[in-house]
Design a protein around this nucleic acid. Structure first.
Length: 405
RNA sequence: CGGGGCGUAGUAUAGUGGUAGUAUAUAUGCUUUGGGAGCAUAAGGUUCGAGUUCGAUUCUCGGCGCCCCGACCA
């Protein structure tokens, strides 16, 4: 992508209506745009990051047998009345609306009920189980107070997976698999060393103890107590007070055991080999994509801007052409990168070098290739690492090899 | 939902009961070109409603919006 064509622009000034680091940096760098409190649009750069996070999650969910689908944002209130969750006193942050004929609709808050109801049409035999279905779907929650930039919002993309198993053992086996897949996901987005599988209560959703995935950050709303650093285990403050010091953390994911509660309500059962009717054991597994992105910014950015990990950076390389004299040479490098299928953001703008460096630091692409006049003569490229700030000089072939490894 | 703060140009801010200023961004020209350059010119603004007043962006009341603290939060 040529930066001269990118419609977003960076800003020097922080927006006056944001305090959180994630919102300030993502807004200044042109990744997001606030529509109103707790509702953010994703601009081209932000969308690229979001899609990369989505793909990582998709790969890991597919790897444990997940089948992707997409359910609707508009939901039939009748389904929710069956589990007594339609009442505003039970779930108080729902957006609801009505059809012209007056029938009430829910606007997607979560999907346990609709998916369980839908599956009664498809599951009837032990041969149909276990089943793991998931989606990337926009959830709407009428938060009393949106805050912390893109961390607590009223509309957000969520990966929610639902597991349906024949026995409690089979359920637990998958639950552990999914917990491990989650740790892989958080490691791949760059949060592995500071994310802990944390025992917590399930709030209004379940009476069982559940597992949250908590990333250490001063921007967090939760407090956790680390119980095993090597295995990355912790407990949430809400479960029990500990003598050790609590750490602030951000909940980046959660997994819930539901038992047979929802399947039973909708009559979702299966027949075993002997033809006997058996209950189904259900679990739910969620990750908010925007919150994950915001957490990465909170945790990995520095005073100059964002520092994206390789796997979720909007581009692999930021190519800077420093002057008119280097433009032709940089154009050629850019074209070659395209043919090699390298994702490159090419700063071909007619602005001064200092501005390009500042913008590159703010946008945070991990590798920056700086084309100055001496590169034309020597054919040696100056490559700068965003995280360390260190520069090295390598050949173009070396660069391609490094990018492809 | 309780408490507090704030609404001035695309953005960030100053100021005033009587023609609203600066920076930045934008447009044009010239000079520049390795860490957000310089000069000149141009265009661009008081959240909405009511009240007080000869006159309100400024004062009063209300609405709407945004932020913070708390409560709440799969």
């Amino acid at each position: 992508m040529r930066q001269s064509k990118l419609f977003t622009k960076t800003r020097k000034e922080a927006p006056s209506d944001e305090v959180s680091k994630n919102a300030i940096l993502l807004t200044r760098a042109g990744f997001i745009h606030k529509e109103f409190a707790g509702v953010y649009s994703y601009l081209p750069l932000g969308l690229r990051v979001l899609k990369k996070i989505e793909n990582i999650i998709r790969e890991e969910m597919n790897a444990i047998g997940g089948q992707e689908l997409l359910m609707t944002a508009l939901q039939d209130s009748e389904i929710w009345k069956k589990t007594n969750r339609w009442d505003d006193k039970v779930v108080d942050n729902w957006f609801k609306t009505k059809l012209v004929n007056g029938n009430e609709l829910g606007i997607a808050n979560t999907h346990e009920e609709p998916i369980t109801a839908m599956l009664t049409e498809f599951i009837s035999s032990y041969k149909d189980l276990p089943l793991y279905v998931y989606q990337f779907q926009t959830k709407f929650r009428n938060e009393l107070r949106a805050k912390s930039g893109i961390m607590r919002v009223r509309e957000f993309l969520m990966k929610d997976l639902y597991s349906f198993s024949k026995t409690e053992e089979e359920f637990k086996e998958f639950y552990e698999k999914c917990a491990n897949a989650y740790m892989k996901i958080f490691a791949r987005v760059g949060l592995g060393d500071r994310t802990y599988r944390t025992v917590a209560t399930g709030g209004s959703f379940t009476t069982n103890l559940t597992d949250e995935f908590q990333t250490l950050s001063e921007a967090g709303e939760d407090i956790i107590y680390i119980t095993d650093e090597d295995k990355k285990r912790a407990v949430n403050k809400e479960v029990e007070d500990k003598s050790v010091e609590g750490r602030k953390s951000i909940e980046v994911g959660n997994i819930f055991p539901y038992g047979s509660k929802y399947p039973d309500v909708f009559g979702l059962h299966f027949k075993d080999e002997k033809g006997e009717r058996r209950p189904i054991f259900m679990g739910a597994y969620g990750i908010g994509l925007g919150r994950l992105m915001g957490t990465v910014v909170e945790v990995l950015s520095d005073e100059k801007g964002i520092v994206w990990p390789k796997e979720i950076a909007p581009f692999q390389v930021h190519l800077l052409s420093l002057s008119n004299k280097t433009k032709k040479f940089a154009d050629e490098i850019y074209q070659t990168l395209i043919t090699k299928e390298v994702e490159a953001l090419y700063d071909d703008r007619d602005v001064r070098a200092g501005e390009k460096f500042a913008d590159a630091d703010l946008i945070g692409i991990p590798m920056c290739v700086v084309i100055g006049e001496k590169a034309i003569e020597s054919n040696i490229l100056e490559v700068k690492d965003r995280a360390s700030g260190k520069t090295k000089e390598i050949t173009f072939e070396h660069l391609i090899n490094e990018l492809k490894s």
